[in-house]
Design a binder for these strands. Structure first.
Lengths: 225, 225
DNA sequence: TGATGATGTAATCACTGGTTACATTGCGCG
DNA sequence: CGCGCAATGTAACCAGTGATTACATCATCA
């Protein structure tokens, strides 16, 4: 490495002058977008480096400069998808007050499933653990750990307020995660037809099972609906 | 088809005489076993027709006679795995009396997760819906429908006996399935390390979340443990 | 015993990911 | 100001995979 801390991509501004200017412009970005689109169209398994290169109008070897392997591309794609996922979750949480942690927990589950149902292939890439390496140093891993920690605190708050019937919060947390992850996965893996769940019903069913779970862990307040 | 209803494999008995006798013996069976082993070793994705052929000591084109495609091989593998899965479930249910349907529901979940945790790759092949075609005419599909129907009846019995607090049985059933499927999937997809669940803990955790769920759907009988 | 059909072999094709040698382009330094 | 150099894309190649065909071999049965 000759000079460290280069600005990484300083000039290169040439958005739409020549039709096929010099090299490409921002191949990295375009490849990620193409991969996301490929996943959207044919599932996560349908993503191939060559096809992404083809769509970017570039030779099969070109992506190698930016992504030394398919895994590297998928890791970048997962990072992008994860950011969008987090954004949706954050937006949903912003609408529920801190004063009702159980409601926040519920909103978290709903937002999780809503995004997963609308972006099944992207969700699969993030969570399948077969499309890229999972080492703890990744942004994605840290991101995930943050969500886990947040959920833990939310449940602790709920318990402190007497909203939960059981104090085994870890158990509640894992069960909740398994529930939503399982539902999202059933969708991805095509289980819903055998269960008689139509496309448009899925969102309602998601809400129904989350509410069932919440009712199951909530402390008994007969007055609550 | 010249003569229908042939015994399918009548003579051919030559288990261990010559070292490399004539053709092979029962290549179809051997290929399925090799594929199961490959899945065990490297996950479902690691199964390849060529490698299975290699392990069977046979040329790459040989499997084509028995399985015209990788999907066909995987379908056969899934059928074999599904049989073993069903056997485990049946054995577990045989130990719980008909008189306590909720306990049977619980035992079903426990057996489901026990097999899934011990045979993750085989479970993945069965349930992932990306390793073979899922048409309704398959034995596997009928098999699955049977399990769903059985669960439904069990829950109906439990409700009739006053063991459940909610009458929306479909919702309970789907939530239960999502819970166990999600847990099994988290294991397959390598989520447990981030959740601080060690290998040997997984079985206990599985039982814990199933019990949490059961407690959540059970009618309130303060005396029950 | 010899014909026939089932089964495995060899060879080939298309496609994928990965890798290297080379060409081109534009930036930055002398 | 212009030239070298590094970044970036191209072309060509390799290995591995699934699929498919022509051909060889072997077991059975008429």
């Amino acid at each position: 490495m000759p000079v460290s801390a280069k600005p990484k991509r300083p000039p290169v501004r040439r958005p739409k002058d020549q039709p096929k200017p010099y090299h490409h412009g921002d191949l990295r970005r375009v490849l990620i977008e193409a991969a996301l689109q490929l996943a959207r169209e044919g599932g996560a398994a349908a993503v191939s480096v060559r096809e992404a290169a083809r769509r970017a109008g570039v030779s099969p070897g070109a992506p190698f400069r930016h992504f030394p392997s398919r895994d590297a591309l998928m890791t970048a794609v997962a990072g992008e998808a994860q950011q969008r996922f987090r954004a949706e979750i954050s937006a949903a949480l912003a609408e529920v007050p801190d004063s009702d942690p159980l409601a926040r927990f519920r909103a978290l589950g709903l937002a999780y499933l809503r995004w997963a149902m609308r972006n099944p292939a992207h969700f699969e890439i993030i969570s399948s653990g077969q499309y890229f390496v999972h080492d703890k140093a990744t942004d994605l891993s840290r991101d995930n750990a943050e969500v886990i920690d947040f959920t833990e605190r939310t449940l602790a708050d709920a318990y402190a307020l007497g909203q939960l019937r059981s104090g085994d919060l870890k158990r509640v947390q894992i069960a909740g995660r398994a529930l939503v992850y399982g539902f999202a996965r059933m969708n991805i893996d095509g289980h819903f037809p055998r269960w008689g769940i139509a496309e448009e019903e899925a969102a309602l069913t998601a809400e129904a099972i989350i509410d069932l779970f919440i009712e199951g862990i909530a402390s008994k307040r007969p007055g609550a609906a």
